[in-house]
């Protein structure tokens, strides 16, 4: 069993400060290791294959809109967020050793791109599709990045973003109440 601090130190020694950015211990349950989004696949592979870590399970992969950009109102009083980041959180568990770790990657809101981990944990396939569906985060090298829940003809709209506004109509059906 390793604590998040120990795992953070192992990763930092292996990958350096360019890739393993910091350790956030202010959150109540898990300490969160922040990782460079273009190297998350390599970090994940190491987490899975390393003899002392053996993270064989990805419990959860979820997108988050940090909403930390500047809020801008257009002429119709509709608020949009510009700048800031979208995040992806990874919660890994080792069945064999029994320890857990949480990772976070932050990617710019205007062009959110994260390396895929679907080949490392197959679970991530649909989870990444959901994060793409709800937040528009592009997972690079994902073999089948389509919407998973919303209709295929939904367009370039991502409903769980904080500045999402319902369209008036979808295929001729009025949406607002």
């Amino acid at each position: 069993m390793k604590t998040s601090e120990e795992i953070y130190n192992i990763l930092k020694e292996k990958f350096g400060e360019e890739v393993i950015l910091n350790l956030n211990t202010t959150e109540p349950i898990d300490a969160i290791i922040e990782v460079n989004p273009s190297k998350i696949n390599e970090v994940s592979k190491f987490l899975r294959d390393s003899e002392e870590l053996k993270f064989d399970t990805l419990m959860l992969l979820s997108g988050v809109d940090d909403a930390n950009g500047t809020k801008v109102k257009d002429e119709n009083e509709i608020e949009t967020i510009q700048g800031g980041t979208l995040s992806v959180y990874y919660h890994c568990h080792s069945m064999e050793i029994g320890h857990k770790v949480a990772l976070r990657v932050a990617t710019p809101r205007e062009n959110p791109q994260v390396q895929t981990v679907e080949r490392i944990w197959r679970t991530a396939d649909w989870h990444e599709r959901e994060a793409f569906d709800m937040f528009g985060i592009k997972f690079l090298n994902h073999h089948d990045l389509r919407r998973i829940l919303m209709p295929d003809d939904w367009g370039e709209r991502y409903p769980l973003r904080k500045d999402y506004v319902d369209p008036e109509y979808y295929n001729g059906i009025k949406i607002p109440y």
Partner: peptide, 20 residues
Amino acid sequence: NSGGPYWNYGYHVLKGVDRV
């Protein structure tokens, strides 16, 4: 009938089947 608990924030819910 009306969208129920999703009537306001349900981005994916039809607000009453009588619309179709």
